[in-house]
Amino acid sequence: MRNIVDPAVVPAVPDAPAAAPLIEFRNTSLTLGGRTIIDDVSLRVEKGEFVCLVGASGCGKTTLLRLLAGLLHPTSGAVFYDGKPVVRPRRDIAVVFQDYSNALLPWRTAFDNVALPLEDLPLTKPERRERVLQLLECVGLVGEQKKFPAQLSGGMQQRLQIARCLAQDPVALLMDEPFGALDALTRQSLQDEMQEIMVRSGATIFFVTHDLEEAIYLGDRVIGMRPGRCVTEFAVDIPRPRNQLDTPEHPEFLRLRRALLEFIKGGET
């Protein structure tokens, strides 16, 4: 099992660039009730990449994520993960939902929520306990382990959901507007934690957001969607680690922000 906490064990970037991408949408389309939701999308995500998907609401960002998670099936084309088509959800793809309070088990403590994915693994009790504490530590919730989700703030609940997803030991972490329901300050600190989690876990991150600045701040690449289609993409050439003070003033940040804003505005006319 890969160790999430110790960065020395897992390199952030895989040693050999694989020939096949980790994730590939190949001419993927989805039609529901005669309406085309996803229209012939082709998209590749390399292993270890942090890809952000932006676009106006209703343009199919979440649908794309659900196709990748195996929660939906394309009408035509396919979604490949590790070279094989995704037919059902898999353990090594974890999904962080925006509505953290619905996604947590309200009758379980923080500790037991994180333990959920570990319960059917062949671990001894102390091993499981250690792993859960490690994950809670990773998201800064060790002191809250005995509390129930309803006793935690929104930011803490979302951290808890992230910890539970990390317990799946994911190779790909799919995040559906994870910070959309949080206040601005909490969002910033979670964004910074996400950078660390990315480095520590080495996970490939597929991040859906409608916040352009968040997308630039976090992503290696930002993909812009128009209804049903992926239309544009920008590589984010800003060095890491990024920080909330300097990065938003980086010329590249400003350039990308303008370009993305123009893209979004262009979609409205």
Partner: peptide, 18 residues
């Protein structure tokens, strides 16, 4: 039951009994 929780259980690959 909150549909999101059923989705979480699908994502974790739980069988019917679990």
């Amino acid at each position: 039951v909150q549909p999101r929780l059923l989705e979480v259980s699908r994502l974790l690959g739980f069988g019917l009994w679990t």
